[in-house]
């Protein structure tokens, strides 16, 4: 089987949740690592999960699927998911997939923390 490559994700605590900031391209080799790390954070039952995508220059459909899973997990437990600081290519794939209207997308971490 193809090996999964680890994704570096920095995290920052918020009063009511957590910010996750993955870095690097998220494709089929790296999305399993991101999925696992998001799932770990969801175990802590945050009220607000912010995913800062400023360090992600590229994302494929497996990365998008990871975001959709995160959205479903947060909705299930009454939490809020916000995406912030999207790079142009990541924004483009969300637009083509018509998911830009499904996710709450804000400009930056400050906006995500106060929204």
């Amino acid at each position: 089987m193809s090996k999964s490559v680890s994704v570096t994700i920095q995290s920052e605590k918020l009063p009511d949740g957590v910010v996750l900031a993955p870095s690097g391209e998220i494709d089929l080799s790296r999305s399993p690592s991101m999925r696992a790390q998001v799932a770990e954070v969801m175990k802590t039952a945050p009220k607000r999960l912010v995913i800062d995508l400023s360090g992600v220059p590229y994302m494929d459909s497996s990365g998008v699927a990871t975001l959709v899973e995160a959205l479903q997990s947060t909705r299930k437990c009454g939490a809020k998911l916000l995406l912030c600081a999207l790079t142009p290519r990541v924004r483009s794939i969300l637009e083509i997939s018509r998911l830009d209207t499904v996710f709450t997308i804000v400009a930056d971490r400050a906006a995500a923390s106060s929204d």
Binding site: D60, S61, A65, V68
Partner: peptide, 18 residues
């Protein structure tokens, strides 16, 4: 169908769209 919001299944749509 893109109105079905769920993980996965977007690859072919992305190929045809681009």
């Amino acid at each position: 169908d893109l109105s079905d919001i769920r993980p996965g299944g977007l690859g072919v749509h992305l190929i045809r769209s681009t």
